[in-house]
């Protein structure tokens, strides 16, 4: 099952050496495992993203372990110092083992 996600860079124009913000937004329920199903009264099992990896041209620069306390449709924003042209890839996995990957291209302006 593919999960909807988006990788964004802020600001839109940048040079080599600038620090930009890279955000990953995911459409994910992030179930805590404490909520009850209103109809059946059973607990809804926990289901959340537990592993996020940011990498640039194959070299990882940030890894995040997250827990169920993050909001539904979570956002992860980290900084990145632009070193040149390439591609940022973000891989994330949830507790059901659903692995996804998304990315965006880095094109610094001269």
């Amino acid at each position: 099952m593919a999960t909807k996600s988006l990788v964004k860079i802020k600001p839109k124009t940048y040079k080599v050496g600038d620090v930009v913000e890279v955000s990953l937004m995911v459409m994910h329920p992030m179930e805590t495992g404490l909520r009850k199903d209103k109809e059946t009264g059973n607990l809804i099992p926990a289901h959340y993203i537990n592993d996020v990896k940011f990498s640039f041209n194959g070299t990882p620069f940030t890894t995040i372990k997250s827990w169920e306390s993050l909001s539904t449709n979570p956002v992860y924003t980290v900084s990145y110092k632009v070193s040149g042209e390439g591609e940022i890839k973000v891989a994330f996995t949830d507790t059901k083992g659903d692995a996804n990957e998304n990315g965006t291209k880095i094109k610094p302006k001269a």
């Binding site: 070299t59 620069f61 940030t62 890894t63 995040i64 827990w67 980290v78 990145y80 110092k81």
Partner: peptide, 11 residues
């Protein structure tokens, strides 16, 4: 909530 591992490449 979250454990974020950073490297010098983050800037």
């Amino acid at each position: 909530c979250a454990d974020v591992m950073l490297t010098p490449a983050n800037g």
